[in-house]
Computed example of a mutant assay.
Amino acid sequence: MGSSLCSVSYLAVLAIIVLASNIGVQAKRTIRIHKLEKVAQDTTYLRSRLRIAESEINELKIDGSLDLIHSLNNDWTVVFKVLRSPDGDANFEKVLTLEIQLCDFMKSYYKDIFYERIKDYSNAPHPSKCPLPKEHYVLQDYPLNVKVLKKLMSPGFYRIKYTLKNEETKILSYVLEMELEED
């Protein structure tokens, strides 16, 4: 299920761009990933692994795999939340929430934003492929250029939560915590 694997990283990018609040001449900025944690995984449905590493100053490398044990259809929902705090305290404010059925996600955000960017680095399913078939999906050495994100994002701390669920049963959930510092 490449869409779930990809949406962890790519929906994060989309959400951060939506957060843009001050574009213009700015000081040097640094993105620091503090934590990428898988907080839920139901291995009766899937097994996943995701890794993000800085490879160059403005580039992150994303690797991951997803073993989809059962096909998934539009009964499954992608939930994506972005929260922000100016100083990283416990008072994170909700900036963006997206909740969409899986096949609808494939036909829209995945098709329009992600697929063309990742297809050369993965065996990600075509956007028209839903229900998603059982498969071993891999994303390898995807270079995510964060230079534009550094210009668009407001300095602060971000908590990005991704969940794949069926009704209220979570089968996959990740949390990404990152910071944008202005030097």
Rank of each mutant, 00 (worst) to 15 (best):
Y109K: 05
K134E: 12
Q140T: 12
D104V: 12
N91R: 15
K94H: 03
L132E: 03
R84N: 07
G88H: 12
R84M: 10
K150I: 03
L144K: 07
P131L: 05
L96E: 06
D104F: 04
A90L: 10
Q101R: 14
N91G: 11
C130T: 04
V95R: 11
I118S: 06
V146N: 01
L83D: 08
T97E: 05
T97C: 01
V79K: 15
F92S: 07
D120W: 07
A90T: 11
K147H: 05
Q140N: 13
F105D: 03
W76Q: 02
Q140S: 14
H136F: 14
D112E: 13
V79F: 08
S122N: 11
A90F: 09
G88W: 13
V95A: 03
L132R: 00
E135S: 13
I100K: 15
N123W: 06
L149G: 05
V148P: 07
P131K: 03
Y137F: 15
V82M: 11
K119M: 09
L132M: 05
F92D: 05
K147R: 10
L139V: 14
L144A: 12
P125S: 11
C103I: 08
S128L: 06
L98T: 06
P125V: 12
Y121G: 07
N74P: 06
Q101I: 01
A124W: 03
P131H: 02
D104L: 13
L98P: 00
F92K: 13
V82R: 05
R117Y: 07
K107E: 10
V79S: 14
D141C: 02
D89N: 12
L139G: 12
I113R: 11
F80K: 13
F114N: 07
K81H: 06
L149I: 14
K111Q: 12
F92P: 09
P143N: 10
L132Y: 00
A90D: 13
L149K: 13
G88P: 12
F114K: 06
P86T: 08
K134R: 13
D89F: 02
D112Q: 13
M106N: 15
L132H: 01
K134F: 01
P125H: 10
V146C: 04
S128I: 05
L72D: 00
L72N: 00
I113Y: 13
P125I: 10
K94M: 09
V146P: 02
N73F: 01
K111N: 11
Q101T: 05
K119G: 02
F92T: 07
Y109S: 07
N74R: 15
P143Y: 09
P143C: 09
N74C: 10
L96H: 09
V82F: 01
P131Y: 05
I100W: 04
D87F: 09
N123E: 08
K111P: 02
H126W: 05
N91H: 14
G88V: 11
N73V: 01
F92C: 08
